[in-house]
């Protein structure tokens, strides 16, 4: 009976994946190899021109900028998220749950709406500038909105929980007795951090990095709302090719390229995680 159930559910999942993941992906790959057509969107002949166009400095620049912004957002998430995750993991029971709740609460709100919230804070007459003036600042209001800075701020805000949660998981598992042992052997604060804490929480850092970096490449609406009408992220490029420029094959090629790059990153991550686990002795 259980056997039948397991087979049925496995079959259902396989069917689901085939229809909603494999098939669309194949369609996107196929589209990326076709030629643009004004009324049918795509037409023959098969071509690799779409991929060649990605090397055009205009688009290659978007790709490079996008990776830069995503990397910056990831590093900022790490710098903010690590101490936060540490405090949460080491807090006493009632506080720990409260803090964890605070991390998770933003998930209850649509992230597009949260991007608009950031906009309200950063706008020329927004909360941040008002606060600055209230504190006695008397220069020009800061032009923060529609800059790469605003996009990074939005990405950090939206993606921070994805950094904090995996970090929390590894820090909570970290045995405080190992830190006592290190102190006992003469390691000061910095050495305890570098020699024991960092290597043992590395899997969480890598996991959080992947969970922030990959979405950061594609969150086009954050860039749309906060970065103005510029193609700052690869996600914007893909979206605009499909919806604005109506160049499906090129949008598909950019999309496939992004997926392949993400796949490579994930592969590198799992390889490093496997090595880290070998080090820590967990199968």
């Amino acid at each position: 009976m259980q056997h039948v159930f397991r087979r049925a559910s496995t079959g259902l999942i396989a069917l689901w994946l085939a229809v909603f993941v494999l098939l669309p992906t194949l369609m996107v790959v196929a589209t990326s190899l076709l030629t643009r057509h004004d009324s049918h969107f795509v037409s023959l002949p098969l071509t690799l021109d779409n991929y060649a166009r990605l090397f055009d400095p205009l688009y290659a620049g978007v790709l490079v900028d996008s990776f830069g912004l995503a990397a910056l957002a990831t590093v900022l998430c790490l710098l903010v998220g690590y101490p936060f995750a540490w405090i949460v993991a080491r807090a006493r029971a009632p506080w720990r749950h409260l803090l964890l709740l605070l991390v998770i609460v933003p998930f209850w709100t649509n992230s597009l709406i949260r991007a608009y919230a950031v906009k309200l804070v950063l706008a020329t007459n927004g909360a941040l500038n008002s606060a600055l003036f209230a504190l006695g600042y008397s220069g020009e209001p800061l032009q923060l909105l529609y800059t790469p800075f605003a996009v990074v701020a939005g990405l950090v805000y939206v993606l921070l929980p994805f950094m904090i949660l995996p970090l929390y998981a590894v820090i909570e598992k970290l045995d405080p007795r190992l830190l006592e042992a290190a102190a006992d052997l003469g390691a000061g604060r910095l050495q305890r951090f570098v020699r024991v804490i960092l290597p043992l929480t590395l899997p969480g850092i890598v996991a959080g990095g992947v969970l922030v970096f990959l979405p950061a490449l594609g969150l086009f609406y954050v860039s749309d709302v906060l970065g103005g009408a510029k193609d700052l992220l690869v996600g914007n490029l893909v979206k605009n090719q499909f919806l604005v420029a109506r160049d499906w094959p090129f949008g598909a090629a950019a999309s496939v390229t992004l997926v392949v790059l993400m796949g490579l990153l994930l592969w590198a991550w799992s390889a490093s995680a496997r090595r880290a686990n070998q080090r820590i002795g967990e199968p």
């Binding site: 007795r177 190992l178 042992a181 102190a183 006992d184 052997l185 043992l200 820590i280």
Partner: peptide, 30 residues
């Protein structure tokens, strides 16, 4: 005075070996 400033070493009841270091790395730590 913090533990790292005391010239005292402990062999812990639960060993507390560093899982990410080899035997050599553990012994060499101090």
């Amino acid at each position: 005075l913090p533990p790292d400033a005391r010239h005292v070493n402990t062999v812990f009841q639960n060993y507390a070996l560093f899982p990410h270091l080899t035997v050599h790395g553990n012994v060499a730590f101090g």
